[in-house]
Design a protein around this nucleic acid. Structure first.
Lengths: 157, 157
DNA sequence: GCTTGAACTCAAGTTCACTTCAACTTTAAT
DNA sequence: ATTAAAGTTGAAGTGAACTTGAGTTCAAGC
C-alpha cells in the first residue's frame, strides 16, 4: 500500500510513533478517521499525521483525550488543524503549562522552606499542603491536597 | 476512644485528611501500621500522623506508593521519620521536582517557539517532541515522547 | 494451493490509587 | 434492651489510555 497517497496502519504507526492499537483506539474515540480498502483495511490520508502530531502535543500538555477530541471537534467539518487553529489552541495550552509550572514551583519552594526544619506539620508544612487548601477552621480537617493543575497524569504511551 | 494516647480511624482520617478507606489501603500495602482494640478495631499511635504527612508530601512530589514504601522501609525498624530522615529524603525529592520543572519549562519553550509557526512537524516540533527523543535516523520513526519525569501522575485523592 | 505476515474485530486485561459495596460486629448512648 | 453510629472484612468497581489475546480474514509470494 505504499502506492499513491494513502498509508497503511503500520506506516502511520511507524511515522507517528503511536502503536497501531492506539490508532485504532483513537479512531474508536472519534479522534481520527480512516478510509477502508475493499478488503476492509484502514487506509489513512497523509493529513492524519498532522492530526496525530496535534494529539500528541496536546496530550503532552496534559489534556485528556476527551478534551482533545473536543478541541478537534471545534474545527469545521473534521478538518485537519491549520496554522490559525494551531495558534489559537496553543495559546490555551500555554496558559495551562504556565499554571502547571507555577504550581510545581510553589511545591518546590515549599520544600525548600522545609528542608532542615523537619516539621512535616500536617497543617502548616508547605510540601505536604502546598496550596494551603482546606486549611480554614483551625481545629478541624487539615486536609492537604495538590492543586488541581498538578493532579492529572502526564503520560504518553 | 478519645482517651489516652491512641486514635481511632475516623480521628486519624479527620486529622490527616485521608479517607478511612485510604488508611486501610495504606495499611494493607505496608505503609502504615495500626494496633487493635480487644474488639478488633484499629487504634493508631500519634506518630502515624507524621508518617502520613510524609506519605502525602512524597506523593505530592510524584512518588508512587511503592517508592514511598521503599523509602519508609529504609528507616530502621519501621521508625517514624525523624528530622534527619526528612532532610536526607527531601533533598532527593528536591532533585525530582527540579527535573520536573526543567522538563515542563522545555515543553513551554517549545510551545513558545512553535506559536505562530504552525509547523506541528512530527520530527521537529518542540512541543510534540519536546526532548527530541528517538529523533535519530532521519527517515525512520520520528517517535515523540514526553520525558520520563513528566510521565507520572501527580494525583492526590 | 499453501504459507506467511499484516490486518481485522471484540472482549477482556493492565496499572495506580483508591472507593464502594455487602454483610456483619462492636461500641456508645438512650 | 434497643438502636444507631462507627468499625470490620474481602471482593469488586472506578477511570484513563491503552494493550493483549483469541480467532478470523486479506494480500502477496512461491
Amino acid at each position: 500500500m505504499n502506492t499513491h497517497d494513502v498509508l497503511s496502519i503500520s506506516e502511520v504507526a511507524e511515522r507517528s510513533g503511536f502503536a497501531a492499537s492506539a490508532l485504532r483506539y483513537y479512531e474508536s474515540q472519534g479522534l481520527i478517521s480512516a478510509g477502508r480498502t475493499p478488503g476492509g483495511r484502514r487506509c489513512y490520508e497523509r493529513g492524519v499525521l498532522r492530526r496525530l502530531a496535534f494529539i500528541r502535543a496536546a496530550s503532552n500538555v496534559g489534556l485528556t483525550l476527551e478534551e482533545i477530541r473536543a478541541e478537534l471537534d471545534q474545527l469545521p467539518a473534521g478538518r485537519t488543524p491549520t496554522k490559525a487553529d494551531w495558534t489559537r489552541m496553543s495559546r490555551h495550552w500555554r496558559a495551562r503549562l504556565d499554571e502547571q509550572l507555577a504550581a510545581l514551583q510553589r511545591l518546590r519552594d515549599g520544600l525548600d522552606s522545609c528542608i532542615g526544619c523537619g516539621c512535616l506539620s500536617l497543617q502548616r508544612c508547605g510540601i505536604s499542603n502546598p496550596a494551603d487548601v482546606a486549611a480554614t477552621s483551625e481545629g478541624a480537617p487539615g486536609a492537604a491536597y495538590l492543586p488541581a493543575v498538578l493532579r492529572r497524569p502526564h503520560r504518553v504511551r
